[in-house]
Amino acid sequence: MWSWVLHRITGVAIFFFLLVHVLDTALVRLSPEAYNAVISTYKIPLIGLAELGLVAAILFHALNGVRVILIDFWRKGVKYQNVMFWIVIAIAAIAFLGFAPRHLSHVFGFEI
């Protein structure tokens, strides 16, 4: 049940980011200055941290989506749904730990 709740919450969050992201990217059609002005807000530390949250949400939603597909289509999917949930969490955590230091080094300008 918690995987279902998390799938919904991360899905809604990603949806609202997608709306904003299509609009900010559309500014390339207006002028280089307009696009650069808006995209520079993505580089401030607070938004840089929010991007970590976005990537974490995407990682969970994507991997749990694979789990949902396996539950639906794989004969043993229902039997292994619980262990697959923890596999999802583990892979998401590993990928997140691979991404976070690199992203933070870009946002805060340090070398790793």
Binding site: V28, P32, Y35, N36, I39, Y42, K43, G48, E51, V55, I58, A62, G65, V66, I69, F99, R102, H103, H106, V107, G109
Partner: peptide, 29 residues
């Protein structure tokens, strides 16, 4: 669409946020 989006979005995140200077390099150019 979910299966296809996994490849598209992780590819997008990898080239735009992971490679090179990541978010710092993103501008009009």
């Amino acid at each position: 669409s979910g299966v296809v989006l996994i490849f598209l979005i992780f590819g997008h995140l990898f080239t735009n946020l992971f490679l090179g200077e990541g978010i710092k390099a993103i501008d009009f150019a």
